[in-house]
Amino acid sequence: MGIPSLSILIHEILKLLQHAGCDPSEVVFFRLGTSGGLGLDAGTVVISEAAVDGILRSYMEIPTLGLIIQHPAKLDEALNKELLQISEEIGCKSELGKTMCTYDFYEGQARLDGAFCDYTEEDKLAFLKRAHERGVRNIEMESLCFAAMTHRAV
């Protein structure tokens, strides 16, 4: 889906909540999605404790009125603990970790199979190692927007 489409969806959901008379601070925002794991066994569920961009910053930048506005990308720590406890109770292999959100499926995710690739496999592996050392456990294309917009709404 990616950030642009998710941004539209979240705006529409928040407007619907407003029209329904709901207080967004009383709503639990929850997202499930696919991602590529980083240093994990296949099938491990990552519970995102933070969302970071492709250069490992925990905020989403939005050009607004000719300025770059930074919105913190924060997630619910209590909900994460609850999800981790539930996953343990049901025997689901899971781990808390940062989720790296990219704007591009190929270069943004350090893939080598896109139409353009201006880096080596060694460059890729060094970057992924650095990201893993900083707590990144999976990579996808929506978490930054989800975290920034839902945090902003509550």
Score class of each variant (00 low, 15 high):
Met1Pro: 14
Pro4Ser: 04
Pro4Trp: 09
Pro4Asp: 06
Ser5Trp: 13
Ser7Asp: 06
Ile8Glu: 03
Ile8Met: 14
Glu12Trp: 09
Glu12Gly: 07
Ala20Asp: 12
Ala20Gly: 07
Gly21Ile: 03
Cys22Leu: 12
Asp23Tyr: 06
Pro24Glu: 01
Pro24Arg: 08
Val27Thr: 00
Val27Phe: 00
Val28Gly: 01
Phe29Ser: 06
Phe30His: 14
Arg31Thr: 07
Gly39Val: 01
Ala42Phe: 09
Gly43Val: 00
Thr44Pro: 10
Val46Ala: 13
Ile47Pro: 00
Glu49Pro: 05
Ala50Thr: 03
Ala51Tyr: 09
Val52Lys: 08
Tyr59Ala: 02
Ile62Ser: 13
Pro63Gln: 12
Leu67Ala: 15
Ile68His: 13
His71Val: 04
His71Lys: 11
Lys74Gly: 07
Asp76Phe: 01
Glu77Ile: 09
Glu77Asp: 13
Leu79Met: 07
Lys81Ile: 07
Lys81Ala: 14
Glu82Asp: 05
Glu82Pro: 00
Glu88Leu: 13
Glu88Met: 10
Glu88Cys: 10
Glu89Pro: 00
Glu89Met: 05
Ile90Leu: 04
Cys92Ser: 10
Cys92Asp: 04
Ser94Met: 05
Glu95Ala: 08
Glu95Lys: 09
Leu96Asp: 01
Leu96Trp: 03
Gly97Met: 01
Thr99Val: 08
Thr99Leu: 07
Thr99Pro: 02
Met100Phe: 09
Cys101Lys: 14
Cys101Gly: 03
Cys101Leu: 10
Thr102Trp: 12
Thr102Ile: 10
Tyr103Pro: 06
Tyr103Gly: 14
Asp104Lys: 08
Tyr106Val: 01
Tyr106Asp: 00
Glu107Arg: 12
Glu107Gly: 09
Glu107Leu: 11
Ala110Trp: 12
Ala115Thr: 10
Cys117Val: 11
Cys117Met: 11
Tyr119His: 05
Glu121Trp: 07
Glu121Asn: 11
Asp123Ser: 07
Lys124Pro: 00
Lys124His: 02
Phe127Met: 14
Lys129Asn: 13
Arg130Cys: 03
Glu133Leu: 11
Arg134Leu: 13
Gly135Gln: 04
Gly135Glu: 02
Val136Gln: 06
Arg137Asp: 02
Asn138Ser: 14
Asn138His: 10
Asn138Leu: 07
Ile139Ser: 11
Ile139Ala: 06
Ile139Glu: 06
Glu140Arg: 14
Glu140Phe: 09
Met141Gly: 05
Glu142Thr: 11
Glu142Val: 10
Leu144Ser: 08
Leu144Thr: 07
Cys145Val: 04
Ala147Trp: 05
Met149Tyr: 10
Met149Cys: 05
Thr150Cys: 06
His151Leu: 11
His151Ile: 03
His151Met: 08
Arg152Val: 00
Arg152Ile: 02
